[in-house]
């Protein structure tokens, strides 16, 4: 009986703390090679910026924004690369890695034997993906300012927007991971991601597309993200950007809710 009433060192408070312990596990697991992989993740959008934004930009010159303003092609492409890298950073952590931990490493099985709940694992993994993604985004914004592609003030206000983009795609990725069956499906995710990358108003304005395609493009999450960040870095924020924010918040909420519920169903049979 004594053991039942003895005060324990174990604390129950806070889903927040338990989610943090999940993120903490990922920090502990960082191997030496991982830092190089991270540097690579940061480098990717920068390489695209130089190749497409500047290299191809020399062939294009200036480009008109939907609002009527004209900017250099590099200014046009840079925020899109930023949004796309926030997307791919969030997706790589929450699809491939998350799925592997869930299905093959059976890591979450061990965690669920502790007070940690499925939704807290989802939140913890998401928080971790965001820490990583935010470092990329901040570094990229610094480069944009250094290259005079935006002003420091706009870069500062674009930062929270990139975090929101990361969160929304992270939740979306996690939801997808709980819905797919096997590794083969990742080919599909990769292709979908690539299609988004090409057609989300990233390299040319959506107005360049035929009407039907244009509407399809405008409802995709990456298009909304590009629109939001481009609006901020080029200083052309309007009501549409408020809509972008609401869109991304809804995506985040739905993705998390579905992921939490599906994990509960899969892991707590």
């Amino acid at each position: 009986m004594l053991t039942l009433v003895l005060p324990k060192l174990v604390s129950f408070e806070g889903a927040g703390r338990r989610s943090a312990s999940v993120a903490e596990r990922n920090v502990t697991a960082l191997g030496s090679a991982y830092w190089l992989v991270m540097l690579g993740g940061f480098l990717e959008p920068v390489l695209y910026l130089f190749s497409i934004g500047i290299g191809v930009g020399q062939l294009i010159g200036d480009i008109g924004l939907p609002g009527g303003a004209t900017v250099s092609y590099a200014e046009f492409v840079a925020p899109a690369m930023l949004a796309a890298s926030a997307m791919s950073g969030a997706l790589s952590e929450t699809t491939f890695n998350f799925f592997g931990k869930m299905k093959y490493m059976r890591l979450y099985e061990g965690m669920l034997a502790t007070p940690v709940r499925p939704i807290e694992i989802a939140l913890g993994e998401l928080a971790w993906a965001m820490i990583r993604g935010s470092i990329y985004s901040a570094a990229f914004l610094v480069i944009m300012v250094a290259m005079d592609l935006t002003t420091p003030g706009r870069a500062l206000s674009a930062f929270p927007a990139t975090v929101l983009v990361g969160f929304a795609f992270g939740a979306l990725g996690m939801m997808t991971s709980t819905l797919i069956r096997s590794w083969q499906d990742f080919d599909l995710i990769g292709s979908a991601q690539f299609a988004l990358f090409l057609f989300s108003g990233t390299f040319v304005p959506a107005t360049a597309y035929p009407a039907a395609l244009r509407w399809l493009v405008e409802v995709t999450p990456l298009y909304r993200s590009v629109d939001l960040i481009r609006g901020i870095t080029t200083g052309t924020v309007g009501w549409v950007q408020a809509l972008d924010v609401v869109y991304l918040l809804v995506l985040l909420a739905v993705g998390l809710a579905v992921a939490g519920r599906r994990m509960e169903r899969m892991l707590c049979k």
Binding site: L9, V10, S11, F12, E13, R17, R18, S21, V22, E24, R25, T28, G110, M111, T114, P115, V116
Partner: peptide, 11 residues
Amino acid sequence: LTTYARFFGIP
């Protein structure tokens, strides 16, 4: 062991 302990909120 140490990471697992953190899941229980152990300092």
